[in-house]
């Protein structure tokens, strides 16, 4: 017997969570794009997606965020710090790759400086993940040693029952348990079996790729130029990526008053590493693509013992020129044979 949340109870759960002070967020299809967004009713949630176009990152690390407002006076500067306006939230229906992406970024945002924008949002969010029963050609979680029912980064894991009837509930963290107390009476004990999880073909040998990347001789390999020749240098892959986390701090305003903002930035852009002198240590697109791969599978794991990729496949799925991490690592797998 396992705890089951039946679909027809979900609207009541949403009601209950809302009255308990939670904002309920989940996958929705709006204005020709799927995202995670706040909902009023369970009916707005879209569970048929393989995964939303936009990643869950947006909820923790928005594309543009005010940090402080400032006024420069004759002898002083007044500042007014802006912190994220969040309260408790339940993100219902995250995908395992998105949830694990947030856990992957935790050590980065808490390393030498604790990023309070990130952690305030992390601490106030309960992530309720739904295991995947469908996958597409771009899904690659299994290649990253994860699975369509990985628990990493989730507070609750739901396993869908056959026929969209509901979900088996697995409570993973205290935060999850606490949030689900509010709906305890809406859950039922049942022997209903979970539907089989999606089959995601393994696309490359991660260990072999990492070993190849760690070999300093491969830094200047011609491979980088060949694999990235068609890259057009947009930031679509990095901005849709749940784990890409680079940002830029910009002041917007006039001479005396303005607002300091934290904006997404991307290693795909020529401007990303441009020095004030005009010199750019990554002056070509191939050097930029190499950086993205090296960062995710060599430097980041070197520092935090985890790869900076959760296998969602958005980079390849949305690439205007059909590039992406999958192809690059598949090719590296071949090179390392």
């Amino acid at each position: 017997m396992t705890k089951i949340l039946f679909s027809d109870k979900l609207d009541k759960c949403v009601e209950r969570w809302k009255s308990a002070g939670f904002t309920v967020i989940g996958p929705v299809q709006r204005a020709n794009i799927s995202t995670y967004a706040a909902v009023e009713h369970a009916a707005e949630l879209e569970f048929g997606l393989i995964l939303p176009d936009r990643s869950i990152k947006d909820l923790f690390f928005p594309q543009s965020e005010p940090m402080l407002r400032y006024t420069i006076k004759k002898e002083s500067i007044d500042t007014d710090e802006c912190l994220p306006p969040v309260g408790p939230r339940i993100i219902f229906g995250a995908r395992p790759c998105d949830a694990s992406g947030m856990a992957i970024d935790d050590p980065l945002f808490g390393w030498d400086y604790k990023d309070e924008y990130w952690f305030q949002r992390r601490n106030e969010s309960v992530i309720v993940t739904i295991a995947c029963t469908k996958a597409d050609d771009f899904c690659m979680c299994t290649s990253l040693k994860m699975a369509p029912d990985s628990c990493k980064g989730s507070d609750i894991l739901l396993r869908p029952l056959a026929g969209n009837k509901g979900w088996q509930v697995e409570e993973l963290t205290d935060r999850g348990r606490e949030a689900f107390k509010t709906i305890a009476d809406l859950l039922q004990e049942s022997s209903e079996q979970a539907a089989p999880i999606a089959v995601v073909e393994k696309k490359f040998d991660l260990d072999a790729c990492v070993a190849w990347l760690q070999n300093p001789e491969h830094f200047e390999s011609r491979f980088w130029k060949e694999i990235s020749m068609r890259c057009i240098g947009c930031a679509s892959c990095t901005y849709l990526c749940p784990t890409c986390h680079c940002f830029d701090i910009q002041d917007e305003g006039d001479t005396y008053t303005g607002i300091r903002r934290k904006n997404w930035d991307s290693c795909s852009f020529a401007l990303f590493t441009m020095h004030t002198s005009g010199h750019n240590p990554r002056s070509t697109q191939s050097a930029r693509w190499r950086q993205r791969i090296m960062h995710k599978f060599n430097y980041f794991p070197g520092k935090f013992s985890v790869n900076s990729c959760s296998g969602c496949g958005r980079c390849s799925r949305q690439c205007p020129v059909d590039m992406g991490i999958t192809e690059t690592l598949q090719e590296i797998s071949k090179l390392s044979l």
Binding site: A31, I33, Q63, I232, G233, C234, A235, S236, T238, Y239, W264, S266, F269, P320
Partner: peptide, 12 residues
Amino acid sequence: AKCIKCYACRQA
């Protein structure tokens, strides 16, 4: 409002 300034439009 959906724009994320990834500049894919420009680069393409």
